[in-house]
């Protein structure tokens, strides 16, 4: 059964006619064409599909679209502003924290949620925050470095 759903994604309002049992992940990728959000395990284990819902990291593969109407959804596409990459995106690129890149959108969004809550987290806290995002290239060291480098910069300025 199709229905019109109203979504607020990356600062824009959308009205979408879609199947009501679709997950947020499916709607983002298939209906809105926002393929930056990745489908990994599709079971809530890997964290590749992480998006921010009202600023908190959520698994879009286990979230029903109908449940998030009226909530603020942020995907990786919503981070860059006016053609400028978000500091986290820049840091990931500069520090080589990207290997195959599949976990990166989820990693960056989870990191953003952490830094919004606590701009100067300890290394331990960073590791704990990204514990739900699996990187199968296992490049965790550089990912943690990249996130910590953003916290350093903001403390200098």
């Amino acid at each position: 059964m199709k229905r019109i759903l109203k979504l607020h994604v990356n600062g824009e309002d959308f009205e979408i006619l879609t199947e009501i049992h679709k997950t947020l992940l499916e709607v983002l990728r298939e209906d809105l064409g926002l393929t930056g959000t990745k489908r990994g395990c599709d079971l809530g284990t890997c964290g590749a599909c992480t998006v921010l819902i009202d600023g908190k990291p959520h698994l879009s593969c286990l979230t029903l679209t109908a449940d998030v109407q009226g909530k603020k959804i942020t995907t990786i596409e919503g981070l860059a502003q006016d053609g400028q990459l978000h500091p986290l995106q820049k840091a990931f690129a500069e520090k080589g924290a990207i290997q195959c890149g599949f976990c990166t959108p989820g990693m960056i969004l989870t990191a953003k949620a952490l830094l919004d809550e606590d701009p100067h987290p300890s290394e331990e806290k960073v590791k704990k925050a990204i514990s739900g995002n699996l990187c199968r290239c296992t490049g965790y060291v550089k990912i943690v470095d990249a996130i910590l480098s953003v916290t350093d910069k903001s403390s200098e300025s």
Partner: peptide, 9 residues
Amino acid sequence: IGTPQIRNL
């Protein structure tokens, strides 16, 4: 339990 994301959900 699980992961930070699972704990939110």
